[in-house]
Amino acid sequence: MSGNRLYGCVEAGGTKFVCSLGNDEGLIGERARIATTRPEQTLAEVRAFFAAAADRHGPIDAYGIGSFGPIDRDRGSPGWGSILKTPKPHWSDAALVAGIVGDADVPTGFDTDVAAAAMAEATVGAIGGIVVYVTVGTGIGGGVVADGVPLDGERHAEMGHFRVPRHPADTGFAGRCPYHGDCLEGIASGPAIVDRWGCSLSDLPDDHVGHEIVAQALAHLSITLIATLSPRRIALGGGVLHTPGLIDRIRREARRLNNGYLLPDEMIDSVVAPTALDGDAGLLGALMLARRAAQID
């Protein structure tokens, strides 16, 4: 393929859609941030961005869309390219691919935003084997790739929706997940933090017990991933992970939980680590989804 090919890249998040262009050399500088309101409004703005881009640069050769979930990623399904039942108001059954690509007959790669970010993490870091990317923000989700390719299960992973042991100081909080209450997302996502303490984790005093509560929950996630997948890297991204000192707290708690068994303790520092791509990981992953779709099709 020529480096002159043009790709439409979309990171579709629960708060905002980020759109950009790319080619076979990387992302192009143009991008737009569009609020995630109702599907008809948000997707119309996304289409308008790419229509204007095509007027300036020529036709888009392929699209890559990394989306918040749950999504239908089975190409054999009549609902492929759609959001499934989601706690995000108005977005259940939204036809995401059709709403962005429209009638254009172009290859389109579609996966979760976290699977796309994991692709970017593995590719840019030149990491083989299993790589996991987890985002902790409006929700909690994780993606897994093997040698840079997303794992192809019956559905995509839902790492935010299992239960972890509760911190003794937090047993009175019922959790905010509308399906499971106090699953991981229900106790450690950004909205769950605000529900308890009225502000983001980064705004709490350094000695506030909230830091311990969230770190313990995310350390359990990390140790579970180590025990089940033995990944080369777990990259923790998202708004909650911008809290100063949180990664160190997670690592300390993960070492305590590990108790010297799964890995030498010093290896946890490289496995439970923030991604160097936080911010552009989703868009880079969307670009890789577009390139892969163009190659397959």
Rank of each mutant, 00 (worst) to 15 (best):
G125V: 08
S230V: 03
R251V: 11
V272K: 04
A98V: 06
K16P: 02
P168F: 08
V271E: 07
E40H: 11
C9H: 10
R56D: 13
P191Q: 04
L257N: 10
F17C: 03
G245Q: 09
C177M: 05
A192I: 00
F50P: 03
I213N: 11
V101G: 01
A294V: 02
G238I: 00
A227H: 06
I65G: 04
P78C: 08
D72K: 03
A146S: 11
V149S: 08
G143S: 05
R75C: 04
S2Q: 05
A115P: 03
H211T: 01
G14V: 08
R163K: 01
D147H: 09
F49G: 01
R232H: 15
I268S: 03
I193Y: 10
L43K: 00
G14F: 12
A188W: 11
G69V: 01
N258V: 03
D297H: 13
P70Q: 09
D248I: 08
A54E: 13
P59D: 08
H220G: 04
G81H: 04
T135Y: 15
L96I: 09
L246C: 06
D297E: 15
F173R: 01
R56F: 10
N258Y: 08
E185A: 14
K88S: 04
P39Y: 06
G198I: 10
L246Y: 14
G237R: 05
A62G: 06
H242M: 09
V106Q: 02
F173M: 06
L204K: 07
S202G: 09
D280K: 09
Q41Y: 06
G198A: 15
E158M: 12
L263P: 00
L229D: 13
R166A: 11
V209E: 14
G139T: 00
L184F: 14
L284Y: 07
A219T: 06
I130Q: 05
Y7W: 08
V46P: 05
I226N: 00
A157F: 14
V124K: 15
D182M: 11
T171G: 12
Y133D: 01
P274D: 13
G66P: 04
T243G: 13
S189A: 15
H156Q: 06
A122K: 05
I296K: 13
I140S: 02
H180I: 02
P107G: 00
K16Q: 08
A12Y: 07
V18N: 12
G245N: 07
A276H: 03
E45Q: 15
V101T: 02
A126Y: 13
V106C: 14
